[in-house]
Amino acid sequence: MLKYIGRRLVYMIITLFVIVTVTFFLMQAAPGGPFSGEKKLPPEIEANLNAHYGLDKPLFVQYVSYLKSVAMWDFGPSFKYKGQSVNDLISSGFPVSFTLGAEAILLALALGVLFGVIAALYHNKWQDYTVAILTIFGISVPSFIMAAVLQYVFSMKLGLFPVAGWDSWAYTFLPSIALASMPMAFIARLSRSSMIEVLNSDYIRTAKAKGLSRPAVTVRHAIRNALLPVVTYMGPMAAQVLTGSFIIETIFGIPGLGAHFVNSITNRDYTVIMGVTVFFSVILLLCVLIVDVLYGIIDPRIKLSKAKKGA
């Protein structure tokens, strides 16, 4: 187990190295320097600024020093907002994004599993078809469209929820539904099909033959096993919720890291784009790692040390 985690960590570091390198050189290739704004700076000042940020050094030296500072968890200053570092942005924005993302993930898990299980228990009855329509709907409507529609209907027309902002729990309601809708649909589908498979297996028949009640069979025997595929989906779901948050946070005016990221793209604030990309990658890679390890713990059939060859 430890050996497996160790090897995965090594791969993670290689992947991160690739990401940092690609990000660094892409940003170098980006048109325009960090100080080429609307106003043309006098050449002396630009040279001074470049010297201050170490941009006058050869590219390779810059690259090595960037690698070093990333390894020390220092993403450098923002070039657009003087006096603010990328680390400041992350520490102010990430808690907000994390709250929103966690709420969305919990919502997606709870409702998704509930719908999936109901659909499987009432296979080919109206409940199943209702869930099927809901999930197709959820998969076909991108989160940002969902967000706009929810905002229009529930905030602007009905006035039930605040339009935008980040204050109390009521502000988190619509954004987290918008973020959760697509993952919820995927989870409902996954848990439905695995639940159907499990319900047809022999040990469920045995459990029924023992005279166990239907809730006991469903909860204790079926759902536990049916949830395994849902666990594997947690990694991609984290990525989906995270990228979804970029636009959702912008639409609902939430001061999270996703909104900062979108801002930095519009402003071409290259150090922030680089830093936040690397930060998001670390978060996502960690999520995938945790999910894979969890999967190995939950499902004893998976031998982690031999599970290196994917299908």
Binding site: Y11, M12, T15, V18, I19, V22, T23, L26, M27, A239, L242, T243, I265, I273, T277, F280, S281, L284, L285, V288
Partner: peptide, 11 residues
Amino acid sequence: AVPSLLMVILL
């Protein structure tokens, strides 16, 4: 393992 949407945005 590279988050694809992030890379697309960078590109």
